[in-house]
Each structure stands twice: as C-alpha cells, then as structure tokens.
Nucleic acid binder design. Sequence first.
RNA 1: GCGCCUGUAGCUCAGCUGGAUAGAGCAACGGACUUCUAAUCCGUAGGCCACAGGUUCGAAUCCUGUCAGGCGCGCCA
Length: 555
Amino acid sequence: MKHIIKQIVLDAARKSFETGMLPSGQIPDMEIEEPRHQSQGDLSTNIAMVSAAVQKIAPKKIAQILVSNMDQKDFIEKIEIAGPGFINFFLRPGAWHPVVDRILEADDRYGASDAGKGEKIQVEFVSANPTGPLHVGHGRGAAVGDAVGNILAFAGFRVSKEYYINDSGRQIKTLGRSVWFRLQELAGRLVEFPDDCYKGDYIHDLARQVMEQEGPDFADQKDDLAIPVCAGYAASQILKQIRTDLEDFGVVFDQWFSEQSLYDSGRLEKTITDLKTRDLVYEKEGALWFRTQDFGDEKDRVVVRTNGLTTYFASDIAYHQEKYERGFHRVIDVWGADHHGYINRMAASIMALGKKNEQFQVILVQLVNLLRGGKPVQMSTRAGEFVTLKDIVDEVGKDAARFMFLSRSYDSGLDFDLEVAKQKNSDNPVYYVQYVHARIAGILSKAQDQNLVTDIDFTRGTNLSLLVQAEEINLIKILAGFPGQVEKSAETCHPHVIFTYLMSLASAFHAYYNRHKVIIQDRSLSLARLSLALAVKKVIRNGLSLLGVSAPERM
RNA sequence: GCGCCUGUAGCUCAGCUGGAUAGAGCAACGGACUUCUAAUCCGUAGGCCACAGGUUCGAAUCCUGUCAGGCGCGCCA
C-alpha cells in the first residue's frame, strides 16, 4: 500500500514540475508513514516539508500544489493537508481488502523479499569455548544470532550460521588439567586443586568417565601425557553437550569451525606470512605486532608473542580471512558485551586485508540479569555455580526462553525472570502471541465441524468487501505492515522489531475476537472473517518462526 | 583517565536513519465469560523522555558537555 501511495506522490511531484507549478524537479528523500492518530488518515507523507529547502516555497504551499496535481483514485476517500505540511491520505476500507488475499496466496512466504539479492552472509554466534556448559548469556547470543540469521534469510540473503570452536590454546589445556586433577582425587591422591582450574561439577563427571575409559592405571600416567588425553576427551564431550543443548533450544548450525584446524591446515601460518609480505606487521621487543592503529584501532596488537606462540587475535585474523575466501560478502559476529574492546582491532585487521567497512559487523549483545521472583540469582563462574542454558530450557521451555531473550533490543541489558517466563498467564508474552494462533486454529476447526468449510480452499471467492468493522480494517492494516517490519528488522539486524510487531498484531486480534464473532449465521460474512482469521494465523506463524518460536494449534 | 552500551509512566521496556497530541506490558483501581479457548478484552489513573546548552520550520530522536548505571581497556581467550 505504501508504495502505491508513494507512486501517486511522485507522479504528482513530476507533474507539478512539468507544468511549472514547482520550480524544481528535485525530490528529496521522503517518507510514507502511518500516522499515530486516526484523524491524520491512514497514510501520510512529509514530502512537502522535506522539499521546502529545494523549492524555496513554504511547505503548506507545496502540499497544496502537489495535492492539486494528484490523480483521483477510487480507493482514496480524501486527501488532507495538515499540521506543518503533512499530506494525509484517507483510504476506503476496500483499499485494504486485497492484503488478505495476498497473505493467503503467499502463505509462509508472506513477508519474505529478495532485498538481499542472494548475497552471501555469514552469521557467527555463540562460539563458546568447549570448557563448560552454556550459560544464560550464551542463550541470549544464541537466540539473537539464530533469529538474525532467519530474518536475513527471509529478506533474501543466503545465510550460513556458524559456530567457531575455540579448541586450541590455554583454556583447553586448563580444562585438561582440571579433569586430570579431579581424576587424581578420584584415584585417592591428595592433590591441591589449582585455583585457575574449572570447578564445576561436570569436571568430576568427566574425570570419572576418563578413568573408566582409560582404566585404573591411567592415574599413574605422567602429567604431560595424561593432560592432553583428558583435554581431548573433555572438550569433545562438552562440545557434544553444547550441540545438544543448542538443538534443544532450537538452534542448528550450518557449520562448526575448529580453531585448531587453522593450525593443522597451515592456514594460520599462511596468514602470518601474508601479513609480513604486505608489511602489515613489524617486530618489536621480540614480538610480532599488527599495525592495527593505522586502521582505526587505539594501538597496535601482538599476533606472535615473544615465546613464539600466536595470540588468539592471530587465529581470529586467519579465521576471518578464511570466511571471506569462502565467498561471504558480509560477515556478522555476535559477541557478548564484555568483548567490545575487541571490535576495533578485529575491524582494523579486516580493513587492513582489503575489506570494506560494511562487510564486517559485530552485534554486541548486552548482559542478561537472571532473576527469580524479582531477586537476582547468584552466580559464580569461578566457583562453577551458574544456571545453564539447559537448566533454563528445562524449567521454562524453549519457546518462552527464546521469546524472552528476543523481547528487548540487544543494546539493552535484559532482566530475565525465571518465575515470569514459567508462568502461563498474561505476564508471559509468549503465550499472549501463541494464544492467538491456537485460538484461530480452534475457530477453524469449529468451522469445519459445522461444515461451514470443507477444505482449506474455502477462501477462494470469499467476499472480503464484507469486512467493514473498524477492528477488521485495523487488523488488516497491521497485517499489511508485516513485510515492512521484516525489512526494518533485517536492515537493522534487530530481531526485537519482530517481537514488538507480533505483540501489536496479537493485541489487535484479541480485541477483535472479544468484540466480534467469526462464525455467525451469515455464511458469507463468516467466510470473509474466517479468511481474515486465517491470514492472521499465517502471519503470526511466520513471525514466530523467524524468532524460532513454535506456533501451537492448541494450548 | 580513555572507549562502548544504557538513562522514557511506580517497575520492565518499545519509539531513536528528526515530524503532528510520546506508546505497550506489569503493578493500582473499576468493569466484561450461558458465546469460536477469560492464557482474553474494555475503561480509569499514571510523564520536566536524566540534566544543561546547541543545530532548525520542527528534537525523546542529531551534536557538545555534565551526572548516573553496566561493561571493557593483556605478549589472556
């Protein structure tokens, strides 16, 4: 609907210029928007105001000229000039009815677009070290990354979701040591458990498993030999668990990428050589430094340490270089807010290697504040006491957890109250939206019971012009806005836009439901309303599915 | 000290690529089930959009500064 109005406005502007009523043919960026108040019409444009500068005429005057040059259309009831120069369009109800048909036709593709033109985008998220179970923060990152991927795919990009496994380096060794020391304890040896080791209960379990697998003599092994065995076993087990937990959370990755593979394949070494060739690095005090400062970072960064070992940054450079070589035009990393200090150097290294600013983007997800009944849940990673993602999914369910994580902008910290997420009432937004879907499913099944409709094709030939109630037109207007919201969500990479949209659609439907009955004596009207209800059901489902939340037929 | 994020109703937050009279949920108060699911709806009340300047026809939105909160500033990952 917006683009139809936009065309009318543009035509009027062109005509005004051609007939000499406006001095300039230049048309600045203008907007077609839905005004807040009904008295301001269905759609509105600010073209007169934004044109004032180039036309050198008062906005109201421009508006008058434009309106006088607009073609009469039968779906437009009237056009008004208001406020500082807005042109407000009042549409007849009939203007909105075709939207319902479009939704029923497009079905699960309603809202999709080809805006991305098939461009390849990679979204990398979670990427937690396989040294322990995923916690709440990872959950939010997982929900955001997954939803952003879904939304971009829906907007016509070719999306690949990837998990980067930090299976190399010190923390893996620490994991191995942690298991090894616990195993020593199991073998009855008194050892002092080091402070820098992981203290969670799962370490005990892993130690037991290693002991069973390797036999009773294993505890006598030398540290140097045993620790890598422990590390290898523990990391693969934990990774397996992470994968399972994510699947239970509805997240499936297209690719799992191992940091260690960068070493094994010689990729990392190649990158370092490459950096040297390009003179992007220099030696100082025995270390090798990347000239990130030349590309916007606060200072230069070490890639090879004095001891000859590469830094985490080095593998990340190689990894990202490798991403682009795989053909991704754009790369999005989803990170926890505590990593924001890392953005500049990462971006700098990518610029240095010849990529454009817009080809790399970091989504910084702010921290989650876990509450239970309004009180903070005490957590200590150090002591190994924390609520895991699995705990949360087990307690409140996948849908509630995901919906809650995506309810707010990731720019804001999030209060996640387990009690609220568990409640099956109006405090809990997920049910509010899902309930619409279930309610409509109920209506449709009743319609079938009464033989009002015999197959899913009932909408064909329905007389939608019977939908004239204010609540019905309002509902259709909201339905018409879905593609625009998907577009906005994709452009900004903000999934909560979809959340907010779903809440408003659900609210409009509940209001309609309470005011009007769908199945009534009048068969034609019933069919029209059933079509509308079905359209709502489809849009709710499409929106929920972008967020990775199910749309139940019954609740 | 420097950098990033945040500051909007009692609480949790939308709105922020500038637009007209700033919204929702919860909490409070008052109503609506003999109906297709009350996991719902309707109404009332609630605001110096942290503060101070600036930009302009117009600022919650953009810029500068101040204050407050969160996070980060390793040859760790």
